[in-house]
Amino acid sequence: MIDVMYFAWVRERIGEPRERIETSAATVAELVDELRAREPRYAAAFEDLSALRVALDQELSEFDASLDGVREVAFFPPMTGG
């Protein structure tokens, strides 16, 4: 089981801020493919990966990164702090 979190418009498109997911995905990209196949709202949120960023256990990461040992995955648009 893995905790998946969504922020900003990704959260709005998917309709919830977080969920626990049973997955056998080895990488972030595989997890994204599984989510896309679920329902249109996921396909809409993950339509363009270049518009998204991913964090693994609260550290910025990449879509080809391994999910081995990861407890928390977060998807969000590029950050706009400051």
């Binding site: 922020f7 900003a8 950050m79």
Partner: peptide, 13 residues
Amino acid sequence: MDYLKSRAPFWKK
């Protein structure tokens, strides 16, 4: 400032 803008997880609506 430069890093807070693009590397701190905030989003403005």
